[in-house]
């Protein structure tokens, strides 16, 4: 067994230190080493976006990231999206508009949508498409997810 390394990074706003194998998938590190199971595995090949997290403020698929590359980074998972005062506007809108059916894509979808609204507070349909087309959903046909994101933008703006 290759050696573990000590990893230091920021997780949902708090400093975190952890001993892991450097090639552990970030997805497994979150789910198994840290017990944060909100981040989902839908494919393990970078296609579905269910494992999306924010790494230094950018959306990435955690199934494609080895633990070593998280060293020193700022990591936000679905567990870090809501605040003490309540749901993130994107989460509230997904709930209100039935944008989450089975809910398996929802954590990744919420992460991607939150990132979009931060970069682009008033997204048009094309912006939403560009931001969310890497998040597969098999339940909704996306119509209500787009509605939710647009509603969240209105409430944020």
């Amino acid at each position: 067994m290759a050696e573990r390394i000590t990893l230091t990074f920021t997780l949902n706003g708090k400093p975190q230190t952890l001993a892991v194998h450097p090639m552990t998938r970030l997805l497994d590190m979150l789910r198994e080493d840290l017990g944060l199971t909100g981040t989902k595995e839908g494919c393990g090949e970078g296609e579905c976006g269910a494992c999306a997290v924010l790494l230094d403020g950018r959306v990435v698929n955690s199934c494609l990231i080895p633990a070593l590359q998280v060293e020193g980074c700022d990591l936000v998972t679905i567990e870090g999206l809501a605040t003490a005062s309540g749901l993130h506007p994107v989460q509230a809108a997904l709930l209100a508009h039935n944008g989450a059916q089975c809910g398996f894509c929802s954590p990744g979808m919420a992460i991607s949508a939150a990132d979009l609204l931060r970069r682009c507070p008033n997204p048009n349909h094309g912006d939403v498409k560009d931001a969310l087309s890497g998040n597969l959903c098999r339940c909704t046909g996306y119509t209500k997810i787009v509605e939710a994101v647009q509603a969240a933008a209105r409430s944020e703006a």
């Binding site: 970078g46 976006g49 950018r58 991607s112 890497g134």
Partner: peptide
């Protein structure tokens, strides 16, 4: 190329 998460990485 891919989608946003792939383009970011």
């Amino acid at each position: 190329t891919g989608a946003l998460a792939i383009q970011n990485r």
